[in-house]
Amino acid sequence: MNSRFDLTGNEVTRVGKYYMVSRIAKIGNYGGGPGLKFLIRAFIVHYFGKPLGWLLVFFEDQIRIGLHWAKSIKQRIVE
């Protein structure tokens, strides 16, 4: 595991390269391929995950409260 919590020697960027080639020659059972949206998210989480993780931990309580509020507001709107 490398410092980005990725597979050493087979990082997410490599999946990106596969995605590009698969646009040209798309043959074989690859389970539908990675999908651009998933690929971008995976890239973000590997490359910007650390500050994200830090923010999530540091503002854990605020986020929890925020999510709780959002949920109750949504529920009120639905009702």
Partner: peptide, 18 residues
């Protein structure tokens, strides 16, 4: 409240969702 550990789990969670 280990931020690094949180990130590792976040990465796993993302892949689990995928």
């Amino acid at each position: 409240k280990d931020a690094s550990e949180k990130t590792r789990k976040l990465v796993f969670r993302i892949y689990y969702g995928y």
